[in-house]
């Protein structure tokens, strides 16, 4: 991974000296086994860029804040589709963006790492061994089987070599998906529950929701400049809004289900929403379920950059007929 980091820094320096005004990548975090978004505008800042299995963030949404500049952004396979979505919805000009694709050997699930190895890791280097990562620390090393330590989204990943990018950092890598992993197993288990138990499952999670809106803010599909949940509806003088500000079970349900439907057909499966949630709501169960539903109803959304639910065709399924 050291070579990838060095290649990345060289390319970033080249791009910044060739007219790119802002390079968005990853830098080291202040906590063990973590990275964070890094914004480089000057050549000396590229020395802080890194790429490792802690680079979990989807950086694409930051492009919206810099739509008027020439920007380069690092994308993993799971980040890449969000670019097409935002370009198709006319938020971004593809001509101003340089996509720096990094073939990805998987991202490590931080909680599981910390639970296994303790909260005070000091990792000096990481090697990608194909089916495992080796983390080197002062005095030794840990080898972690990817099957057990990758993020859930990685276990089902079929797109870890980002395509349609302007620069590729490093060579193509082998798929990281675990063929035995079934991303719909938990969804089927929940669907099989009797209604009261299913309700209890979701009530436990939605009851915890803090309405911090981190899921919305991090999501590349949530690109509205004024969100429905911030809008006062006609009759605002009487205090009407689409969703109450109150943290209550009905209002929390309301927020999550509406957001899930706004995102349906447009979600690119980056799973950032679930990662950022401070109370562990399993949002990807809903998003994956809705993605499967839209595919079943409307076919593969990939062909239509606009997305299944943003276009109308007379041939669309119509259950009322």
């Amino acid at each position: 991974m050291k070579e990838i980091t060095e290649f990345l820094r060289r390319e970033a320096a080249r791009l910044l000296s060739e007219g790119v005004e802002l390079f968005i990548g990853y830098g080291a975090g202040t906590r063990p086994v973590s990275a964070r978004p890094l914004f480089a505008t000057k050549l000396e800042e590229v020395a802080e860029l890194v790429f490792n299995p802690f680079c979990v963030h989807n950086l694409v949404k930051y492009l919206l804040r810099h739509a008027d500049r020439k920007v380069a952004v690092v994308v993993k396979g799971c980040d890449r589709p969000a670019v097409d979505r935002l370009v198709a919805e006319r938020h971004l000009d593809r001509g101003r963006i340089t996509l720096v694709g990094i073939p990805c050997g998987g991202m490590l699930a931080r909680e599981r790492l910390l639970a296994e190895l303790g909260p005070r890791l000091h990792i000096e280097a990481v090697e990608d061994r194909g089916s495992s990562f080796t983390l080197r620390f002062p005095g030794g090393e840990h080898t972690l089987e990817k099957k057990k330590y990758l993020m859930e989204k990685c276990l089902g990943c079929t797109r870890n070599n980002p395509a349609g990018v302007d620069v590729v950092i490093g060579k193509e890598v082998l798929p990281v998906a675990d063929p035995e992993h079934d991303p719909f197993k938990e969804i089927r288990e929940i669907e099989a529950l009797p209604a009261l138990e299913r309700a209890a499952f979701w009530e436990k999670f939605f009851g915890r929701c803090l309405r911090c809106y981190a899921c919305r803010e991090v999501c590349p599909a949530c690109s509205c400049t004024e969100c429905a949940f911030e809008q006062a509806v006609p009759g605002w003088q009487q205090g009407a809004t689409w969703v109450s500000k109150a943290k209550s079970l009905p209002d929390n349900y309301h927020y999550h289900l509406i957001r899930a439907f706004h995102v349906a057909g447009r979600c690119t499966g980056c799973a950032e929403c679930e990662r950022v949630c401070p109370v562990g709501i399993p949002l990807m169960l809903i998003n994956r379920k809705l993605a499967a539903e839209t595919t079943a109803l409307f076919g593969e959304a990939m062909d239509d950059p606009c997305g299944a639910l943003c276009a109308y065709s007379v041939a669309d399924p119509d259950e009322f007929e």
Binding site: R36, P37, L38, F39, Y62, R65, L210, R211, C212, Y213, A214, R216, E217, V218, Q238, G239, A240, T241, S244, K245, A246, V276, P278
Partner: peptide, 30 residues
């Protein structure tokens, strides 16, 4: 530049105390 503008830091902070007052109305009651 990297801040999401979410409310996580605020809502997990032991000293944060800002609040909003809202009125909700359902016809003749609220």
């Amino acid at each position: 530049r990297r801040c999401l503008g979410c409310g996580i830091c605020t809502y997990v902070c032991p000293t944060c105390h800002c609040f909003d007052i809202t009125d909700e109305n359902r016809g003749n009651a609220g």
